[in-house]
């Protein structure tokens, strides 16, 4: 059970944060199809940053002496860098869709094509292979918080909650949850959030009240880019062992599905991403999944092909969308370039 919850969180949290990225863009009126591309870019930037910092003496010493605070600081810095560059990358989309009033779907597709191409090109130039890895060690040895890092003896039992949430976890997971909550409050309880949502519903009305629609849309898309970049790095740190290979296994698109399934509302999105997290987790680890702790790997013993388990997240998405899409209510003005002169 502990393993199931931890693994589910590892998949659900990046999904959640990237789905929120989609919400910020769409609520301001811009369809951000580029989430996948921005994730790929963010993952690459974060991993590259970590890889470069691993040559700096401070961090080499920290990893040898087990100074976990310094190492967590490095992970934090990498997250910030990934978020900033994700935001910068998303400016390409904002510029095309806000200033030039271009087709947002095509703009997003272009970014989705550009990110893996650019990342693979650079990775090949940097590392002479198709995957960028950490110079020494792996994500678990550098950034994972274990009992030993907290100074607790390996054999102490922390109880169910302690074992689940304090042992073998990443700081990034919790940070993302906090960011998710804070930004959800910003979206619903602040003046900025109200204005942002107004621009996605009725930009003409918002404009008539003195809100600068272009600025709000830039803000929405930039926050979206930052979150997607962050989500990309967190994904690669926690589930891909801090490597970048120009691929995040369709997570950006899955996040879009989660966003639509969650009806563009943060709480629903959190629930939806947990659901998808469970299925992703089952698909990835069903052979070693011991749900009730009796030493029997039930899912592996049923004898269903692994292909079916891998299909589950996508199949479930389609079925769930089929049931919810009639009720789903997208922001009214999304995808329509704002033109001051139009009526």
């Amino acid at each position: 059970m502990t393993f199931l919850i931890q693994q589910t969180l590892l998949y659900a949290v990046p999904l959640m944060i990237v789905a929120l990225a989609g919400v910020f863009a769409e609520r301001s009126g811009i369809i951000n199809l580029a989430l996948e591309g921005i994730m790929i870019f963010g993952a690459f930037v974060g991993v590259w940053f970590v890889q470069m910092m691993q040559e700096v003496d401070v961090f080499i010493i920290a990893s040898r002496t087990g100074d976990w605070m310094t190492l967590q600081l490095l992970a934090l810095a990498a997250m910030v860098v990934a978020a900033i560059l994700g935001a910068v990358f998303s400016l390409l989309l904002s510029f095309a869709s806000i200033n030039l009033k271009a087709d947002q779907t095509i703009g997003g597709t272009a970014l989705n094509l550009l990110a893996p191409a650019l990342v693979l090109f650079l990775v090949r130039m940097i590392a002479n292979q198709n995957t960028l890895r950490m110079t020494t060690g792996d994500a678990a040895s550098w950034f994972m918080i274990k009992k030993s890092t907290l100074g607790i003896d390996r054999n102490t039992d922390l109880g169910f909650l302690g074992e689940t949430f304090l042992n073998k976890v990443y700081l990034a997971t919790y940070l993302c949850v906090i960011i998710f909550i804070v930004l959800s409050i910003v979206l619903y309880k602040t003046r900025f959030g109200l204005r942002l949502r107004a621009c996605g519903e009725n930009p003409q009305a918002a404009d008539s009240l003195g809100i600068n629609v272009y600025h709000m849309r830039y803000a929405g898309t930039t926050i979206s880019g930052a979150l997607a970049g962050l989500g990309g790095f967190v994904y690669s740190l926690t589930t891909a062992n801090c490597t970048a290979n120009g691929d995040v296994a369709g997570f950006g698109f899955l996040a879009l599905a989660v966003m639509i399934f969650g009806n563009w509302k943060p709480l629903n999105i959190a629930m939806a991403s947990l659901l998808f997290g469970v299925f992703k987790c089952i698909a990835a680890a069903y052979t070693t999944l011991d749900i009730n702790g009796d030493g029997v790997y039930m899912l592996a013993e049923i004898g269903i092909s692994s292909n079916l388990y891998r299909m589950l997240p996508y199949l479930v998405t389609l079925v769930v969308l089929a049931f919810t899409s009639k009720k789903s209510r997208a922001p009214k003005a999304e995808g329509i370039p704002y033109d001051k002169g139009s009526r």
Binding site: G250, F253, N307, M311, L318, L321, A322, S325, K326
Partner: peptide, 30 residues
């Protein structure tokens, strides 16, 4: 059909069917 009858965004439906196809093809040849 999903787009026409259930109003599911075709971009999303297409992406899901892409990955379904990838798994189906692997399964059949396996």
């Amino acid at each position: 059909a999903l787009k026409a009858f259930l109003n599911i965004n075709e971009v999303l439906a297409c992406i899901m069917t892409n990955w379904l196809a990838a798994n189906v093809v692997t399964w059949v040849f396996e």
